[in-house]
């Protein structure tokens, strides 16, 4: 898992950097979505595609494609947190990660030291999986569903 997350060191030229910045803005829903970007960068559409492929292979980009709001599709999401004693951290990590509903899990430096996101088809399932993790670990799972999202979008300058 650690290796999968690790980026390779590749040289990024000016065009790559510009491409990474532009791709975060989103592409138009048209037959040739790379056309505008290619013209801006002075390269062919095929070259844009090849560069994206190379950036994905090197894990400079983690994903390219449509970004969906899973909640809008009828699924449920919830941020969850647990206070896990240090001596049982590895065991609890294994139990939590074994649930396919757990998508991301991060260790954080706080009394609540394990934070994960659950994705299920319904809100009831979130509750059910949380109770299951509680019975398996003997620890409480706090649920922090989103009530409102202040979404603008984000860019990392490359």
């Amino acid at each position: 898992m650690a290796n999968k997350l690790k980026a390779e060191h590749i040289e990024l030229d000016e065009i790559d950097r510009h491409l990474i910045n532009r791709l975060q803005d989103g592409l138009p829903l048209v037959s040739t979505p790379f056309e505008t970007i290619a013209a801006e960068l002075g390269v062919t559409q095929k070259d844009v595609c090849d560069r994206i492929e190379r950036l994905l292979a090197a894990r400079i980009l983690t994903r390219f494609g449509p970004f969906y709001d899973a909640a809008a599709m009828g699924g449920a999401f919830c941020l969850c947190a647990m206070a896990v004693p240090e001596q049982s951290f590895e065991r609890v990590t294994e139990i939590v990660n074994s649930h396919i509903e757990v998508a991301h899990n991060y260790a954080r430096d706080h009394v609540l030291n394990m934070w994960f996101v659950m994705a299920t088809e319904s809100a009831e399932q979130i509750e059910a999986v949380a109770r299951k993790i509680e019975s398996e670990t003997g620890l409480s799972v706090l649920l922090f569903p989103k009530l409102e999202e202040y979404f603008v979008g984000f860019r990392v300058a490359a």
Partner: peptide, 17 residues
């Protein structure tokens, strides 16, 4: 329009950048 699709875009690897 329904908000199911946010956009067609790339997700950068923050660490790599």
């Amino acid at each position: 329009m329904q908000g199911v699709l946010r956009r067609i875009a790339a997700a950068p690897n923050h660490y790599a950048l």
